[in-house]
Computed example of a mutant assay.
Amino acid sequence: RYVMHNSLTWSEELGRYLFVWITFVGLPVALKAGAHVAIDLLLKKTKGRFHIAILTINAVATAILGIVIFYSGIRLVLLGVGQISSAMQLPMQYVYTIIPVSGLLLLFFTVTVYLEERAKALQGDK
């Protein structure tokens, strides 16, 4: 900016879009890694059917969130068709595409993590 006496008009927009993408990619990745903030005191104190019931309720709630993110993301992508970003002239549906992808990944990782945790809980009962 100071060397060429001209600032990059697209850099702020690119930073904003990358921040959105990183946030939506981080949601399912953090779930898979077990890095989400959680209150697991109840899970540590329970065993058996009650433990599995809590795991199931958590998985169902998270799966519903994944479905809502996917559905809302599809609607947003369709809304972005024909819109162009102001500085980069990028079609907005490309920016919004990460939202339904994130919802699907969240749903997939929710199922896999639930099945893994359920299997561990069932083995612990034996």
Rank of each mutant, 00 (worst) to 15 (best):
F24T: 07
I22M: 13
V113W: 06
Y114H: 14
S11D: 14
T110S: 07
I84L: 12
A59T: 04
F109P: 02
L106N: 04
L65F: 06
V95N: 00
A38T: 06
M92T: 13
R1I: 09
W10E: 11
H5E: 11
L27R: 06
L42V: 11
L115E: 05
F109E: 06
I84P: 03
R75F: 08
K44Q: 15
A121Q: 02
Q89T: 14
Q123E: 13
G26E: 12
F70L: 11
L41G: 13
K47H: 03
F108N: 00
I99G: 01
V20E: 04
A53Y: 08
L41I: 14
Y114R: 08
V29W: 09
V81E: 09
K47P: 00
F108V: 05
F19K: 11
V3C: 07
A35S: 15
G80V: 10
H36L: 04
I39V: 10
L78K: 15
Y96L: 10
L107H: 08
E116W: 11
L14F: 09
I39Q: 07
L105F: 13
V60T: 03
Y17Q: 09
K47C: 02
A33T: 08
S85Q: 13
T9S: 09
H51S: 01
G26N: 10
G80F: 06
T110F: 02
L90S: 06
Y71T: 12
T46F: 03
L65N: 08
L55R: 05
L65P: 01
Y71C: 09
M92D: 04
Y2R: 12
T46S: 05
I54F: 05
T23K: 15
L55C: 05
R16S: 12
Q89N: 12
R16K: 14
Y96Q: 05
L79P: 04
T46L: 07
G103Q: 03
A63Q: 00
L106V: 05
G26K: 07
P100E: 06
A30H: 14
T9H: 10
L27E: 09
T9I: 11
V113P: 06
W10S: 12
L27G: 06
K44R: 15
Q93E: 15
L41V: 12
L27M: 11
I99R: 01
L90F: 15
A30I: 07
R16C: 11
L31T: 10
T112Q: 14
E13A: 05
A59I: 00
I22G: 10
V95T: 04
V3I: 10
V20P: 01
A87R: 07
